[in-house]
């Protein structure tokens, strides 16, 4: 009875948010106590590993506090060389991704909007083939390719473009959906701009936020990808991290802390940037972030 009166009042006041929430809470059977218990337990589950890692990185297996494991990381030449390898791969992956996906999305939105969902499905295909299986296929199908591709991280850069597509395609597409491409292109064309000039000087600058989040997502992918790199024996950053972990546990944990914090910081930055530029489409950003869980 009380429910009915409050919700009636709510709908009289134009169905204020509050009453909707109240009804939700009551019907779903959720009280304040339930909420507190669930949220505190969840928070513990997610924060304890972070705290434990911070502690482990300075304490190690014995109980003396020292920051030597952080120092040891930086004095290891392998640290910089693996980081540099991953960095080079990331540049290749990012460049190919931006120049492959952006024109495709812009073209499809202008000329064949009906193809959009098909293209999106193509971009999701990598989720169906586990990366271990992709590696197996690369090793057997591309074995005869010249050494400059198969014998160097070039192959990783080429493959990461595809493997990161489920995340990058969405973010560039979300960026493109937030601007009026048709008008921009028509304006540029009628002012005499060629297609290349239109793409480079009109479309890409306007797609900045979508492209930037794609850049970040593919960079994070490259710096986190382990399966393909390790099975093809390339010493990228995560591969080296696992090697360190085999005999120097506290150093590997220290590195993991740094890697996690950097990734998290970047993700938060991307979602804030995305929210700011496409506030009306904030659901898209969540969508896009949610799809990024499969980089393992």
């Amino acid at each position: 009875m009380a429910t009915i009166t409050t919700s009636l009042q709510g709908s009289l006041q134009g169905s204020s948010e509050k009453s909707v929430k109240a009804v939700h809470g009551r019907v779903l059977g959720v009280g304040r106590r339930y909420r507190t218990v669930v949220l505190v337990l969840t928070a513990l589950f997610f924060l304890v590993p972070v705290v434990a890692s911070l502690r482990y990185s300075v304490v190690g297996n014995n109980n003396s506090i020292s920051f030597s494991s952080y120092g040891a990381i930086f004095s290891d030449p392998q640290f910089f060389s693996s980081l540099f390898t991953s960095f080079k791969i990331a540049i290749g992956t990012v460049a190919i991704t931006v120049f492959l996906v952006t024109p495709t999305v812009v073209w499809a939105r202008l000329r064949r909007p009906d193809l959009m969902s098909a293209l999106e499905s193509v971009a999701l295909l990598p989720l169906i083939v586990p990366s271990v299986v992709v590696t197996l296929g690369i090793l057997s199908a591309f074995a005869s390719l010249p050494n400059i591709i198969m014998g160097s991280p070039v192959i990783l850069a080429l493959e990461y473009v595809v493997l990161a597509l489920p995340y990058t395609f969405r973010s560039i597409d979300a960026g493109a959906g937030a601007i009026d491409i048709r008008t921009l292109v028509e304006a540029s064309r009628s002012l005499g701009g060629g297609w290349i000039a239109t793409l480079m000087r009109v479309i890409i600058p306007n797609l900045k936020s979508g492209i930037l989040s794609a850049v970040f997502l593919s960079t994070a992918f490259v710096f986190g990808e382990f399966a393909v790199a390790s099975l093809m024996s390339f010493s990228t950053f995560p591969v080296w991290l696992v090697q360190v972990g085999q005999d120097r546990a506290s150093e590997s944990v220290a590195l993991s802390v740094v890697a996690l914090l950097l990734t998290w910081g970047g993700l938060v930055a991307v979602s804030i940037a995305g929210l700011r530029s496409t506030r009306r489409r904030s659901a898209v950003i969540e969508d896009e972030l949610f799809a990024f869980g499969e980089q393992l």
Binding site: P49, V50, A52, S53, R55, Y56, S57, A220, G224, E225, F226, P238, L241, V242, G245, A249, S252, V253, L255, S256, V257, A259, L260, T263, W264, L267, L289, F292, G293, Q295, L296
Partner: peptide, 13 residues
């Protein structure tokens, strides 16, 4: 979006 090697090591800790 957290996963892979760093996640494994933070659970080791």
């Amino acid at each position: 979006n957290t996963g892979g090697v760093p996640l494994a090591f933070s659970f080791v800790a």
